[in-house]
């Protein structure tokens, strides 16, 4: 029993060490040449352009449902005109970053784990190393840059579309005036809200890519292992995003908000 526990602890520490070496190695490789800009642009296209539809739809329906749900509560206090404020702050501070990150994890994190995992089991990673090319520099670093640039960009889009979705419901279902909705929405947003809304997706982008790459590069056990890595990348990535969101909230509220 004790042996089994100690083995689990050791294996957990080994995984943590591997995760650190992969993330740190890729980040450090950015400081020196060669840098793979073509691969970085390809990854930006894959993460950013490729996720546009899914992120737009998620943002739109979240904003819409948020308006429907919150209007019922606000009506009880005669506060329907404040629905725009409710939607904009919720989208900007919490739902935009988290839902975008979760959707991108499902699409991009799993894709990276599957691609790199397949490369491991078909010895393509060994082949890269035998040709004198560092896989962390060639494969992980471009994905990391693309992740930390594109996830914030997608989040901004999701926030904007969410607010528009909220407006459509407010205008055509709740019969709220256009000026009233947008005035309430935009007036509520302060600088620290924008900061919170942008710092989170930056961290989430790093988590999505580093977890996806770690799961892919540590794949063992052939094609079945690739399937397991893909699943783990989504599960671990999602849990880490939600957990880090809580701690980021604590930190930002403590140090940034007045």
């Amino acid at each position: 029993m004790i042996d089994a526990i100690s083995e689990r602890v050791k294996s957990g520490l080994r995984s943590l060490q591997d995760y650190w070496s992969i993330s740190y190695g890729a980040a450090v490789s950015l400081a020196s040449r060669p840098r793979y800009w073509r691969e970085t642009l390809d990854q930006m296209d894959f993460i950013g352009v490729g996720s546009l539809t899914i992120v737009t739809l998620t943002g739109l329906f979240t904003g819409m449902v948020l308006t429907v749900q919150s209007s019922a509560t606000l009506d009880a206090f005669g506060a329907r005109p404040y629905v725009g404020r409710m939607v904009s702050l919720s989208m900007l501070r919490e739902l935009g970053p988290v839902l975008t990150a979760l959707m991108v994890t499902g699409r991009v994190g799993s894709g990276m784990a599957a691609e790199l995992g397949s490369m491991v089991v078909t010895q393509q990673i060994d082949a890269l190393r035998s040709f004198g090319t560092d896989p962390l520099r060639k494969l992980v670093a471009p994905r990391l840059i693309a992740g930390v640039v594109m996830v914030p960009a997608l989040t901004v889009l999701s926030d904007a579309v969410g607010m528009i979705g909220g407006y459509l419901v407010a205008r055509f279902t709740l019969r709220l005036g256009t000026g009233l909705y947008w005035h309430s929405s935009l007036d509520a947003i302060k600088m620290h809200d924008i900061f919170m809304g942008l710092i989170k997706p930056f961290v989430f982008g790093f988590i999505i890519v580093s977890v996806g790459c770690y799961q892919g590069l540590t794949t063992t056990g052939g094609t079945r292992g690739v399937g397991e890595s893909t699943t783990s990348s989504v599960v671990v990535g999602s849990v880490l995003i939600l957990a880090s969101d809580y701690f980021l909230n604590l930190l930002i509220l403590r140090f940034v908000y007045p």
Binding site: Q123, Q124, A127, G132, T133
Partner: peptide, 30 residues
């Protein structure tokens, strides 16, 4: 490794590259 060539089991060709890019991978990189 610069003095060694390796033919892996099943070839281990890079799926995302064409045949010529695979063959010239090392020449392009280095």
């Amino acid at each position: 490794r610069a003095d060694i060539g390796m033919v892996f089991q099943e070839g281990a060709l890079f799926d995302s590259l064409s045949v010529s890019e695979n063959v010239g991978f090392r020449l392009r990189e280095h």
